[in-house]
């Protein structure tokens, strides 16, 4: 269980970093952000550099959190962020700048919505995505509840 304000703080930093990537077109900044995403996805948001920054600098100035949250949703979000960052890096390296801008722009939108509105974009789109994907793969998911 984690302090939900940690991932939100991390999303704010991520928003700034991704905006810098788009404005400067510097793939190295994106590479650093990709590493941050990877740590957050692999070891949880509290272990990521932005999570540590939150724990060191921000949390001591705030009161204790009103409630704790599961770490799984932000971890998933970091994994999706990593995916977009990798696509962006491939775009920059391969000279496909438009692809890079789309991928980083999408990640920026998700990070900003999380930071500014606490909105979980994955919640909005993931189920729709699963419905489409499983319809294509001939609907082979067994129902959890048997009739």
């Amino acid at each position: 269980m984690i302090d939900p304000r940690g991932p939100r703080f991390a999303a704010a930093i991520t928003t700034v970093v991704l905006a810098v990537v788009l404005i400067t077109g510097n793939p190295w900044v994106l590479a650093v952000q990709a590493v941050v995403f990877a740590i957050g996805a692999g070891w949880g948001p509290a272990a990521s550099p932005y999570g540590l920054l939150y724990a060191r600098l921000v949390r001591p100035r705030l009161g204790p959190p009103g409630e704790l949250e599961d770490a799984a949703p932000p971890r998933f979000a970091q994994a999706v962020g990593l995916l977009f960052a990798i696509v962006g890096l491939v775009g920059f390296v391969a000279g496909a700048t438009v692809l890079a801008y789309i991928a980083v722009g999408a990640a920026l939108a998700a990070a900003f919505l999380n930071a500014a509105f606490g909105l979980c974009l994955g919640c909005e789109v993931y189920l729709a995505y699963r419905r489409i994907v499983s319809a294509r793969s001939s609907n082979n998911t067994p129902p959890e509840v048997s009739p």
Partner: peptide, 20 residues
């Protein structure tokens, strides 16, 4: 509480597009 991902048939039948 139903895990939407594991009950996609029901999810489709009921027109559920997102969680929660």
């Amino acid at each position: 509480e139903i895990d939407a991902e594991r009950n996609l048939d029901l999810v489709r039948r009921l027109g559920i597009v997102k969680t929660p």
